[in-house]
Write a protein that binds this DNA or RNA. Structure first.
Length: 465
RNA sequence: GGCGCGGUAGCCAAGUGGUAAGGCCAAGGUCUGCAAAACCUUUAUUCGUCGGUUCGAUUCCGACCCGCGCCUCCA
């Protein structure tokens, strides 16, 4: 089955296949490290992780580059306010971002590229643009002249010809020839970091780093370029203008953009008090995989309403899936396999794959899994589920978890398995002696430490909360 | 003003020209020493509103209402 992806460039769902048939060359816009990542940033990166994993499940290799923007206005301002160099300032947030990503089980891209490590490449690209007549200089800064690039606007599907009534124009940028022109290289200012390069002393504009780093590592035409929806304009539009003016080739075949999220039905903002970082949510007692589940449960092109109720529902949903997995491993099943169940499992897998192939429809994929879980639980109750079926069911759950990755609990310490087994044995003795009071108090004590007991016909089953 | 997105049960949410997946929550039941888990039943004659096309529309078209995004830094 073919993977279909919505391409912002064509405004259609198109069949995706890597251009060389086996390796997907993907570039994603990573964080600007001037603060901790908030839950909205993390939605974008969690979606990109889903995309990565699903591409791999098609058997393709990945060559994925993510940038870290570590030089930019806010960074310079904040670092100065704290009396730090930009490097001292961004190091901590870069590290924090990588930690958050790991907590959320985001696979590490094949390459993480920092802007400040690629100043030379950026300057080189600007030099090429100048040689081809796409730039002009004003007060020592270098600007891109968009009127020289006929394709400008093709990604955001905007017509930039003529007057734009109502559009707000930054009045500070009076030195530009046209309001749409953007800066490639900013002339050095005292008190700001700067680099001495072939295009002068200064620092790069925002957009040039992605063009330079993407082409350096992945070539002139990427298979996929992804980012948040807000980057379509101007960031990605400008990347296209920079890259294609130099190469004359399409910069990326597929442009994939994820929607933003709301928190408690409101736009996230610091003043609204609904601006969450992963650390804050974890401190409130939410497991990282619960957050991951909620972020993945709504298809990426839909706005996602991130709520505390939603987190609670996500945690319960995960518990249901874990309960099913545990049951598959602990129920005593008859030998062989039930053919009807075997084909039901195959059907579920097909539905799961088809949903993700359909532009990463994660909600439909979850639907396929839960429908299956109900059917399988019924069959288990009815003893119409044999050991061979359990093997197949666990394989399906593995496939599910190879992309969703929520079944493994984040370990938090607590009692060892042996200690838990010992308490359970004590409780079983008490039950045999019909000392239910003691049995119940052992169960309650274990629950206090986060261990849940379930009595089944096949004995006691336990799990960590 | 320009361009674009969304409005499906209490909440989240999929979906299709042929009569509404799934999850959470809630109520009742089966099972159980009690729980828990699991299962069963109930929960939208209806998909923002009003028209149109059609044998038939939630799904297509039009108008309108509501919420939101981008056009300026932004995941």
């Amino acid at each position: 089955m073919a993977l279909h992806l919505f391409n912002t460039l064509t405004q259609r769902v198109d069949d995706f296949t890597p251009s060389d048939g086996h390796t997907v060359r993907m570039y994603t816009c990573g964080p600007t490290v001037y603060n901790y990542a908030h839950i909205g940033n993390l939605r974008t990166f969690t979606f990109q992780d889903l995309l990565r994993r699903w591409l791999r499940s098609h058997g393709w290799q990945l060559d994925h580059v993510m940038n870290i923007t570590d030089v930019e206005d806010k960074i310079i301002r904040n670092a100065a306010a704290e009396g730090k160099t930009i490097f001292e300032y961004t190091d901590g947030y870069t590290k924090a971002f990588l930690e958050d990503a790991a907590r959320l089980r985001l696979e590490r891209p094949e390459r993480i590229a920092k802007a400040t490590d690629h100043i030379r490449e950026m300057a080189g690209l600007i030099g090429q643009l100048s040689a081809k007549g796409y730039t002009y200089t004003s007060d020592g800064s270098v600007y891109y002249r968009i009127s020289n690039f006929p394709g400008y606007g093709k990604l955001s599907h905007s017509d930039f010809g003529g007057i734009r009534p109502g559009a707000r124009v930054d009045v500070d940028e009076y030195e530009k020839d046209d309001a749409r022109d953007f800066v490639l290289w900013k002339a050095a200012k005292s008190g700001e970091p700067s680099w001495d390069t072939c295009v002068g002393n200064g620092r790069p504009g925002w957009h040039i780093e992605c063009s330079a780093m993407a082409m350096k590592y992945l070539g002139e035409t990427l298979d996929i370029h992804a980012g948040g929806i807000d980057l379509v304009f101007p960031h990605h539009e400008n990347e296209i203008a920079q890259s294609e003016a130099v190469t004359g080739k399409p910069f990326a075949r597929f442009w994939v953009h994820s929607e933003h999220l709301f928190v408690e039905s409101k736009k996230m903002s610091k003043s609204a008090g609904n601006f969450y970082t992963l650390r804050e949510l974890e401190a409130m007692g939410h497991a990282p995989e619960t957050i991951r589940y909620l972020l993945l449960s709504v298809p990426y092109r839909q706005k996602l309403n991130f709520t505390m109720d939603g987190l609670k529902a996500a945690a319960t949903s995960i518990a249901r899936l874990r309960g099913f997995a545990l049951r598959l491993k602990t129920d005593r099943l008859g030998d062989g396999r039930d053919e009807a169940m075997t084909s039901r499992t195959a059907e579920a897998r097909k539905a799961f794959d088809a949903a993700l192939d359909d532009d990463l429809n994660s909600a439909a994929a979850l639907g396929a899994i839960f429908e299956y879980v109900r059917d399988a639980n019924s069959a288990l109750d009815a003893a119409a589920f044999l050991s061979g079926n359990a093997t197949e069911a666990l394989a399906l759950l593995d496939r599910f978890d190879s992309v969703f990755d929520v079944l493994r609990p984040t370990s938090e310490g607590g009692l060892s398995d042996a200690e838990i087994e010992k308490r359970i044995a004590e409780r079983t003795q008490a039950k045999k002696a019909r000392d239910f009071e003691r049995a119940d108090s052992i169960r309650a004590a274990l629950l206090e430490t986060g261990v849940i007991l379930e009595d089944t016909k096949d004995g006691v089953r336990w799990k960590r909360k």
